[in-house]
């Protein structure tokens, strides 16, 4: 559906995007995961032709480029900043953006109503956006990208700064869109979101894609195995070879295949009284790939 190859964007001496290539397939929910400043927004803006790349190309399914009005008509974008008119009501914002895509009359009213429902704002449709909470504005920001029924939806950190309730609303709606067959490109710096929503994930850091695959494949390749931790029934005999570190009776180890590891331990007479397993997550993938944590505050 969309192919980006070798995208480069420099700002002065800083290279914001440094040779990014990936393909979005129809029906994908592709996650672009990376910390702040990784180059997600810049990449997304190059995909839609809002900024010109210094190198590389973007091509859509049937050979169109993002400057082509026909291609643009099929793309919807929810920018990272709240791109709304605060003086206008929710319905007026939606109607305005719809009219940019040539919608009018009954068709436009129908789409506006659909989007208001999508954003859970039908009851507040006549209120000015300036009076909305951050979460409501986020939901409307997302709905505005859908008013013209795009085939490809680009979401730039759609949950930044929202309350948990709005976040759940947005998640549910995106899963619904995914179910309806919409192709989505989702950028975020929250690994939970990428894990929960995306079928494939590209990990971006310093303008480069470090890994690009399905969640399980990423975890397997870069997650460093499941962390298994448990309290042994009895201290192991001295000299027993252990697959991890022992601290008193607590054994802590990593395993790519925990059931097999546990069977092998049982075979050598080691039984657990309690057991806790920790699946690796994208945080550990990122840590493994970069030596750093994904979030500034982590």
């Amino acid at each position: 559906m969309l192919e980006a190859s070798g995208l480069v964007k420099r700002y002065g001496s800083r290279t914001a995007v440094d040779g990014v290539s990936f393909t979005v397939r129809r029906g994908d929910t592709l996650g672009l995961l990376g910390p702040n400043g990784a180059g997600k927004t810049t990449t997304l803006q190059m995909l839609v032709g809002a900024i010109a790349p210094d190198a590389g190309t973007v091509r859509f399914a049937d050979g169109g480029d993002p400057g082509d009005p026909e291609v643009r008509r099929r793309i919807g974008v929810a920018p990272q900043t709240l791109a709304l008119y605060p003086e206008l009501s929710a319905a007026e914002n939606l109607a305005f953006f719809a009219s940019l895509y040539g919608l009018h009359g009954a068709r436009r009213r129908e789409r506006v109503a659909w989007c208001l429902d999508f954003a859970g704002l039908s009851e507040r449709q006549r209120d000015r956006v300036a009076t909305f909470s951050g979460g409501m504005q986020r939901r409307l920001n997302l709905a505005c990208a859908l008013v013209h029924e795009p085939e490809l939806l680009l979401l730039d950190e759609p949950t930044v700064g929202v309350d948990p309730q709005s976040r759940n609303h947005i998640f549910a709606r995106i899963l619904g869109l995914r179910g309806a067959g919409l192709t989505v490109l989702y950028t975020t710096h929250y690994m939970e979101e990428a894990e929960r929503l995306c079928t494939r994930i590209a990990i971006l850091d310093h303008g480069r894609i470090l890994a690009f695959d399905g969640l399980d494949a990423l975890l397997r390749a870069h997650g460093g195995g499941v962390v298994v931790e448990g309290e042994l029934e009895a201290a192991p005999a001295p000299g027993t070879r252990l697959p991890g570190e022992l601290d008193g009776l607590t054994l802590r180890m990593r395993s790519d295949d925990p059931p097999r590891t546990l069977r092998e331990l049982a075979g050598s007479g080691l039984h657990f009284r309690t057991l806790r397993m920790e699946r690796p997550d994208l945080e550990s993938v990122f840590l493994h790939l970069t030596g750093r944590h994904l979030r500034d505050d982590a």
Binding site: G49, A50, R72, V77, A83, F97, Y101
Partner: peptide, 8 residues
């Protein structure tokens, strides 16, 4: 940005 990515 929304205006610029619309077919205008």
């Amino acid at each position: 940005l929304r205006l610029r990515i619309a077919p205008l």
